[in-house]
Design a protein around this nucleic acid. Structure first.
Lengths: 196, 196
DNA sequence: TAATATATTATCAATATTGACAATTTACCC
DNA sequence: GGGTAAATTGTCAATATTGATAATATATTA
């Protein structure tokens, strides 16, 4: 009995708003009032559903990381038999497939991770698994390449992808996106040469 | 006549302290009191020498960018005739030659550049010239490589370098540094193959 | 030593931000 | 319709942060 709970829905709205705010103004630059306004509700509601600031930040970290998992899993599940490389590169570097928000929030959280060992561990694990997945993908495409080479290339792809998103507030030109794509292809070609 | 001015010295102390604070807590996460304490002086002095917050941030951007120039120029001037590549890679990726602070501050400024077109332009120019310098260096080492390839590799080196510094708050292991170095060498090897 | 320009300290007001909680309203069930 | 649990609104105090300026101390020169 009693009124039906909107906790799940409201929490989702709040975190989505928080993510947008952080991507725009950074973590410490996002006040509870801004988050509330972005979410279209009063600050009291933010507190009611998401607790105080400390809890809210912690929840955001879990939420962002948690959200990225199914998206990435779906992406991995969609890897085609033929031409998996183009699929991978399109997913990582084509503008239409890219939303800088996640990486910007991760970047903002990384800053404050310097003062929060738990958060640092969480982000390390996230980046590790992301990188390792790419290593696995590349390893299956180039089974004869050396493991060390594959790992290095995977790290390179992640770096290129992160850097592109991190620079997005500067409104850099499309030539940077092309350079990243070209660079990624060059990197992968080193695996091809090594494995043939 | 009158008491000798300490403006230059004090301003330097303030900006150096501000830089440390920003690298640790981000731009909006650094209060004037924290900056003052880090600089070992009262907030009143910070205001007296560096103006209000807006001026202080603007000054910091100019200072960080300005400071990076002579360091980089000196580095470029030291490029040896034989084995310039190892010199370049050591400079970009060896821990002993690296101080993440500058990149962390640039990263923090990049965030707020989304709301400050002037700042965005400044940072774009900075990254442009940094990237172009590396393009020039690579181009002189591999004169027969295609320009597009050289540009892509230069962007790749910058991305690897930035990413490594940006992840430093996470206390990532040395394997990431090795991966970055290995990846950079792979990238450069693509130029070598193309030019021979 | 007096004049002077600057550093340094001390302090106040204005605003921003957060934390907390009471009061009210709303939707569902019996 | 009455009871109930939760949403929603409203409000207050405590603290943090900034902006600004007066008051004082100090080092240099004439």
């Amino acid at each position: 009995m009693g009124r039906p709970s909107k906790k799940a829905e409201r929490t989702e709205q709040i975190l989505a708003a928080f993510q947008r705010c952080v991507a725009r103004s950074g973590l410490e630059g996002s006040t509870l009032d801004q988050i509330a306004e972005e979410a279209g509700m009063q600050r009291s509601l933010v507190r009611h559903f998401a607790g105080n600031r400390e809890e809210l930040v912690r929840t955001l970290a879990h939420w962002v990381i948690g959200n990225s998992v199914p998206v990435w899993e779906e992406f991995k599940a969609g890897i085609p038999e033929d031409n998996p490389l183009d699929y991978l590169l399109d997913g990582l570097f084509e503008e239409k497939n890219t939303n800088p928000e996640t990486v910007l929030v991760i970047s903002a959280l990384t800053f404050s991770a310097g003062n929060d060992p738990d958060l640092a561990k969480m982000l390390r694990n996230w980046i590790n698994s992301f990188t390792q997945d790419i290593q696995t993908i590349l390893g299956s495409i180039f089974p004869q390449a050396k493991r060390e080479q594959v790992d290095a290339v995977a790290f390179g792809l992640v770096s290129l992808n992160f850097n592109l998103d991190a620079l997005s507030p500067l409104n850099i030109g499309p030539e940077y996106r092309r350079a990243a794509r070209t660079c990624a292809e060059s990197l992968i070609s080193t695996l091809r040469n090594a494995s043939e």
